[in-house]
Design a binder for these strands. Structure first.
Length: 423
RNA sequence: GGAGAGAUGGCAGAGUGGUCGAAUGCACUGGUCUUGAAAACCAGCGUACAGCAAUGUACCGGGGGUUCGAAUCCCUCUCUCUCCGCCA
């Protein structure tokens, strides 16, 4: 959510920048400012009345103390009239405030100046491509075939006990999964991130804090009996650690990492995108997240990108880094780099990480602030990314490393898996 | 699941109808003192909105009510704790 003050001061540039996201902000900003003017004047007349009512109450107190209670009657009369008036003003005010809020949540975050124009993922800008596309020959298989050949994942069993999109990892598949989680967490903590194990269910307030609620309610699994939601990403619980928090500026940067399963309803997905591990209702992910001073957040974004890249380097997976264009950039992000690995069995790029700077967009909603030099509270910047999402890494690893004699495990994982080949 | 207790500022903890945005202690910040530090002393120290400012208004878990006036009384919701039951 953007701040009204910010919109007032930067209307033209905001409108201009949001064109990159294909969003016409002009009318909505005018409406917000108009409502905010209205808010100010309503609040100020209400405050004047309340001030009078407060002083009447004090006067009456004095009158009663000095035994002149009967002189209070006319004051009481005035006070109850004031009460009528303020009641109306107050209800107008809360209506105006909720209208402003409703409008503000419709305005996406302002994209960073480096965000390229574009309508869809086809317009994303490839800024780096690393590694070589594997040449697998014509006997190559996609991961779903490899999974059944080598007994790594039982999709049918998952269908039986839960449904489509809930795979059962078995044998060396389960071990590889566990190895990846440990390896990712070790890499992240090694880079200074503090490890957390958050709850996998969150309450309504947390859903609002990170913006899943009220709009994207349909994307989350809900436990209605207790009014809790299964997390779609660790970002939700971890970011909400910082809801209503004022951090000390010497604490910057705050770096968190967590492994969690992620639950997504993925309503409306179909086709080759959902085959095998490509898109699941439950999947594992290790997330990294930082809270940073506004002056340093872009420096931090670069560091996070480098960090994710170093993991993919070690896994020896070919990957490319994309700068998302305005049309593909998420609602809340100012700048996002996507990581895609090449999965040789399917011959396609798979998104495995998305690293974003939200600037103060999340912080404003969360009320996550720090005290600046003059003691004023200012909004922090938040950033997060996957390091990394498991299923597509799993898919790319087994597809790219398949040989006629088995699937080779990259060196860096072997101390975690305790085997170097799946036969 | 049953019974009870509670929710106040960063923390601890007073406050049961008026001058309480809230005592006191700790923590924190600045100053005096000191070669330096500690101690002691002095001062400051919640958040939001409006305003150039003085200041005003709101907030004592959330919402509603009674009253001229509510942290304090009433209703309701949420959460936490204790005991019992169940249990990894």
């Amino acid at each position: 959510m953007l701040q009204v003050q910010f919109l007032r001061e930067n209307k033209q540039s905001v409108v201009q920048s949001l064109k990159v996201k294909n969003f016409d902000a002009s009318t909505i900003i005018d409406k917000v400012i108009e409502l905010d003017d209205n808010r100010k004047s309503t609040q100020s007349s209400s405050n004047d009345l309340l001030a009078r009512a407060n002083s009447i109450a004090k006067e009456i107190g004095v009158l009663f103390k000095t035994g002149k209670g009967e002189e209070a009657n006319s004051l009481k009369e005035e006070s109850s009239q004031i009460k009528e008036k303020t009641k109306v003003l107050q209800s107008n005010l809360s209506e105006i405030e909720s209208e402003i809020r409703d409008l503000l949540v419709q305005i996406p975050n302002v994209p960073h100046s480096s965000v390229p124009e574009g309508k869809s993922d086809e317009d994303n800008e490839t800024i780096k491509e690393v590694g070589t596309i594997p040449k697998l020959g014509k006997n190559k298989k996609p991961h779903w075939d490899l999974c059944s050949d080598y007994n790594l994942i039982d999709f049918e069993l998952g269908n039986k006990i839960t449904g489509a999109g809930f795979p059962v990892y078995t044998n060396k598949g389960a071990k590889l999964q566990r190895a990846l989680i440990s390896y990712f967490l070790d890499k992240n903590t090694g880079a200074g991130y503090t490890e957390f194990q958050p709850p996998h269910l969150v309450n309504e307030a947390s859903g609002f804090g990170t913006g899943q609620l009220p709009d994207k309610e349909g994307q989350m699994y809900q436990v209605t009996e207790d009014n809790l939601y299964l997390i779609p990403t660790a970002e939700v619980p971890i970011t909400n650690f910082f809801r209503d928090v004022i951090v000390k500026k010497e604490d910057f940067p705050i770096k968190c990492t967590a492994y969690t399963p992620c639950f997504r309803r993925e309503a409306g997905s179909y086709g080759k995108d959902v085959r095998g591990l490509n898109r699941l209702h439950q999947f594992d992910k290790v997330e990294i997240l930082q809270v940073q001073h506004p002056n340093k957040s872009y420096e931090t974004l670069d560091l996070m990108v480098d960090h994710v890249a170093s993991i993919l380097d070690e896994l020896e997976l070919p990957y490319r880094i994309l700068r998302l264009c305005g049309g593909d950039l998420s609602f809340t992000s100012a700048l996002t780099y996507d990581f895609e690995v090449y999965s040789g069995g399917q011959d396609r790029w798979l998104e495995v990480s998305s690293v974003s700077n939200f600037e103060s967009y999340q912080s404003n909603r969360l009320k996550l602030r720090y005290k600046d030099k003059t003691g004023k509270n200012k909004l922090c910047h938040t950033l997060n990314g996957s390091a990394l999402a498991l299923p597509r890494i799993f898919a790319a690893l087994i597809e790219n490393n398949q040989t006629t004699s088995g699937i080779n495990i990259p060196k860096v994982l072997q101390e975690y898996t305790r085997f170097d080949i799946i036969e």
